[in-house]
Design a protein around this nucleic acid. Structure first.
Lengths: 329, 329
DNA sequence: ATGAAAGCGCTAACAT
DNA sequence: ATGTTAGCGCTTTCAT
């Protein structure tokens, strides 16, 4: 069993309040003698304050919730690591919840986390505005990571990279490399603005290309989508460039293309987004735009926790992306 | 603010105890009328029991801790997902802690988690027996995932695959494929038995090969190790086969080999272990031995939580591995 | 300088 | 059938 203040107090022959005070450093009015005695006792007994009791009393648990689609999707572990590293600095625990982008699961996650009295929430890639209703979230502060640029800012912190710009750059690169027919494969989640698509469209329009819906395929941020997208698009069009909504899609696309005997980048150039850890090991190594996932997690946690502990305001912060040119495009 | 039993009780004009009873279904002795009234109130008010208060009272928080080296290492997210999925079924939360295999961090994680009153702990790839000391762990039940076969069983649950067998099979495969000089690159953590190495050695001995320390390199389970291992070994030996302790190592090794102009599998055959999600996208696609990471996480959580909630015993369970033959070896 | 007491939200044994 | 009470471990105000 864990020691309690009560036991220590008994052993030291003082009151619970006194022990509590020295344990928490509020010991200005404690005599040097008792202080020392208690300190030693605490030390030798390996006393560990009960964070649950403390949390109940203070209405603050020093834990935050991390709500994400799927931790086994390679983009998220980096974020998770950033969050946890930062949280640990502040003595915060993080409990994570996978939702698979399912509304029901999302809601039950939030409710669950609230019952656990988390002090704050970090969301990533949630596409439904509804999730941020007062009803569901209550007064818990939240910061969202990786939701593109969001306009209607409720009182919510945001850490994001400009995915529209990233995809715009990616598309421009392909154009400048001489691609004539550039396809776009990405995800189609929620009814929010699709910034990635907008970036693609913007580049095409700027260079007076026609946007051809036959060269656009949207489904989900996974390999399957990349694979299917290529099959579908190539059945109809002859393309020589491909912009992918993320690296997983690019991975699936490369797979389909290779099986189809295409040479990359000779026949078709491909650009991805994220720079997941294995992007450089693909064949050919994937040209992609890196998002600073770890940093994003860190920044999100920092903002949230400082808000919780010091009342510092939530804010929006854009983190820079960076093109990593390799050989796929 | 969240509703409390007290408030509900006031609104319903009954005592706290009564509300508590119907909320928890212990309402055999509550009149149909009050029951109904309270139920409706609970429903309409969106009452959410405070799990922290409940935890304090019951000395059971319905949360477990997951201690792992690094969530951003691609082998672990799958396990994490398995754990979380299973935990959710039982209404358990999981808080995760990255340790980077560092003793100090490991210990502080455990202490931290204990202060949070977690009901149980899942460890993965912890190499130090010391971690499981009574001192550190206390009476908290623990199950370990992915530690190879362990003999000195304390009262600890285990979910594992037979890595010795897996590496043995991998090595045998290379031998049967005609490899003469088979190197081994793996990690070297802790002072525990190195089952993976033993599998390699066993196969070599069985086929009357000499075990040459110049063909063995051990450092860590990452790409760097694979890369360095190849550089070091190839400076001295001419090898035509390589067994890797995990897929990350294989990835680094392939990288080094490719840069060195080697043809895989013509000049050298390679086998990995884990079958991480991108193993099939490497060039060439990696022949490797799959560990059922998701299942391992699920099984571990199931065992642990059933132990916690029903007192079911902890046990050891071996999960099967499976060779996935692709083109690297 | 120290301690008594109230209370965080909940459960459960024990009245009534 | 319902309520009173004590207490989980802690913090904090207010005595002393």
């Amino acid at each position: 069993m864990e020691k309690t203040l009560k036991q220590l107090a008994q052993e030291a022959g003082v009151s619970i309040a006194t022990v509590s005070k020295v344990v928490n450093g509020r010991d200005e009015h404690i005599s040097e003698a008792t202080r020392k005695r208690i300190r030693e006792l605490v030390e030798s007994s390996g006393y560990r304050p009960n964070a649950i009791a403390k949390g109940l009393k203070e209405k603050k648990t020093n834990t935050i919730g991390f709500v994400l689609p799927d931790i086994s999707n390679p983009f998220f572990p980096e974020i998770a690591r950033g969050i946890e590293d930062e949280a640990k600095k502040y003595g915060f625990a993080v409990v994570f919840c996978n939702t698979d982008n399912d509304v029901v699961r999302e809601e039950s996650c939030i409710s669950f986390l609230r019952s656990k009295m988390v002090d704050g929430l970090i969301f990533t890639q949630t596409t439904r505005e509804s999730v941020f209703s007062k009803e569901l979230i209550g007064n818990i502060p939240v910061v969202v990571v990786d939701r593109g640029i969001d306009t209607n800012s409720k009182n919510i912190g945001k850490i994001y990279v400009n995915c529209m710009g990233a995809i715009y750059d990616a598309t421009c690169r392909l154009i400048k490399q001489g691609c004539e027919k550039i396809a776009f494969i990405s995800a189609n989640l929620g009814k929010e603005r699709d910034y990635r698509y907008e970036g693609y469209e913007k580049a095409l329009k700027q260079y007076k290309r026609t946007v051809d819906s036959a060269m656009i395929f949207k489904n989900d941020y996974n390999e399957e989508t990349g694979y299917q997208g290529i099959q579908k698009i190539c059945r109809i069009c002859r393309i020589d460039g491909l912009v992918c909504g993320n690296d997983l899609i690019a991975t699936g696309a490369i797979q389909a293309l290779s099986e189809g005997g295409w040479k990359i980048p000779e026949d078709i150039k491909i650009v991805g987004l994220d720079d997941v850890m294995f992007a450089k090991y693909l064949s050919p190594p994937l040209t992609t735009i890196a998002q600073p996932a770890y940093e994003m997690g860190k920044e999100a946690a920092k903002m949230l926790i400082r808000h919780i502990t010091n009342g510092e305001p939530l804010y929006s912060k854009e983190l820079p992306y960076e093109m990593r040119v390799r050989s796929s495009g």
